[in-house]
Design a binder for these strands. Sequence first.
DNA 1: GAGCACTGC
Length: 729
Amino acid sequence: MSSAAPKQVKPRAEKRPERKNGGRSTQPGGLRSPHGWQPHVSGALLKKRDELQPVRMALPIWPQAEPIRHALRRNNVLVLTGETGSGKSTQVPQFLASEPWCTKTIAITQPRRVAAISLARRVADEMGSLFGSQSPAARVGYSVRFDNATGPNTKIKFLTEGMLLQEMLRDPSMSQYSAVIVDEVHERSVNVDLILGFLRNLVSDMARDGKKRKAPLKVVVMSATADVKGLVRFFADGLPSPSGSANGTLDVPSTQNKAEPNPLATDQISTCFVEGRQYPVKTIYLPQPTLDWTESSLKLIFQIHYKEPLPGDILVFLTGQEVIEGLEKLVNDYAEGMDKEIPKLLPLPLFAALPQQAQQRIFQPAPYRTRKVILATNIAETSVTVPGVRYVIDCGKSKVKQFRNKLGLESLLVKPISKSAAIQRKGRAGREAPGQCYRLYTESEYTGLEERTVPEILRCDLSQAILTMKARGVDDVPNFPFLDRPPREALEKALMQLLNLGALTETGCISDIGLKMAKLPLTPALGRILIEAAKPERDCLHEVIDIISALSIDGSIFLNLVTEERKEAAEEARRELYRREGDHMTFLATVQQYAEEQTDRKAWCERHFVSHRTMQNVMNIRKQLRQQCQALKLLSSPDPPGPSENKTEAIIACLIRGFINNTARLMPDNVYRTVIGNQKISIHPSSVLFGRRLEAILFSTFVFTNKTWARDVSAVQLNWVEEAWDGMM
DNA sequence: GAGCACTGC
């Protein structure tokens, strides 16, 4: 193993012509790093690095560098708890980069794209390295969908969880990495649960049979909350018991049914705790429970505003767009009547559906003598850090997606948050100075909250997660090491769905079709549709890719119009795009016409009341899907076909293949009922088929509010649905 | 004639 180390430090980059800094090696800036393998670093980069050094050294995690290195020399797994502001995400990879065992790349995962990119940029600065694909010499890079910024010498690679999962499908032993750092584990995305399960299997395989990898893979699990015990047990349970293992510990990978892990195995998992950097935040509860968060928030906003000096913005956590916009209006109304002596109030809404530009307003400093009031959803809990906040108002609720096994549909419900979410929200007041948190519930209500937010894997449709597992060779899904095991019915439902789609064989193994589906960035249903379209007898892959691309983006490609005038104008302008066959064919027409437009696509969008930004997104996905179809040998050429004949029937047949469960027929009383489950369902008003009475419909989305709506609808014939069922049997 | 927390490949 020791002989592997020097091999890696001979950079191929030295022999290559430099792209950006070519010819600068004679300049004083062309220095080498202490490790001697980073050629041609410019003086400016080194200056920045040296300036950042004292900042790094002041981070709470800095003194832990040596203990962390030591722990990973001894053991392969480290569970690290680091509170907000500890510096773990930027420092831990740097601590490990020059370790003797670290001959290859370090991967560090993030739940979100922005975090992966901005952390990579920061670490590059701190290391005095070029960044991404700027130069072959760059030692820090990132990989997110549509944007791979890594080079031949990338030593530290930030990537999204989804990206790492895709890599794991293609390289199960993770041979390009010396270490994998899984960050933000406490958020418990489905992807993180899968990654941890796969890593645990890898670690346990290594312990039993080291041949699968030349050098051990080091695993660091980083979390902001301290469920250290659970994570240690999770990994320890996978390790062989040195005392003879007659108790079946190896093969019953459960985190639930064992009281204590084998102490010897536990000893093989290192732990580390690092404090965060947080100002104190005072908590104030309501004396009496309330149901009217809007009114309570309004009162508190003005109470804080009158009582507390500037600066200090207010962040209000609410459930959704409607409530936010209502409160925004009320704050504006009441603020008008304020004494001129009092500073102004500026309410700013913040939710994901808000256009990017409007979201940016929260980062601009407040005008003179003005206090910002940010009215936000959960987005401000993790995804967006709002600067300048000293007061938090927390309504104690959030909207949660819940998958209902029996109905096979997901619905969005307002539910109480967990204690850990309440603590997270409160913490948002103490980032820059001591703060206050007003909870719109009583202390005893708080005491009654669940400790932790229910992990997503217990709440969602599992078909995609299980497809990923099967594609990675997990045949025994019920015995997969889940951090939290989903209920049996949820697993069975997902397995049935995959069987119906032909992703699994009758024995439950993954089929060729399933393997291809797993590699596509699509839900199983959409992936199946795409593969169906590639069949010679269907021959409509290009068309189906266009439709799927439009279905993959969130929101609509058509602009949502407010005034009656604009609505009518849009109806008129879009007439050439609308298809009587339904929304899917309408999407096809729109994507095709947009793609054909060569001169001014932006103007084309304005003429048709189509969102240009969304269409650019659609085109990105379309391009990626074409490339992937080529890689999967579904498509011989990435070029679009010539003028296409009418393929409507073939296209609809493909859609039915993936969405056979999402079909409904018109009943004698003029309501649609789903073919499976006999659920009442209505065509959503946003559909081109709204108000139409058709023999049967197929839809790609449920929206469950006060009614069950079918969105993205196509007209189908009942016998097509029946034939599809027969074909599957 | 409705209105959808948040991520991500």
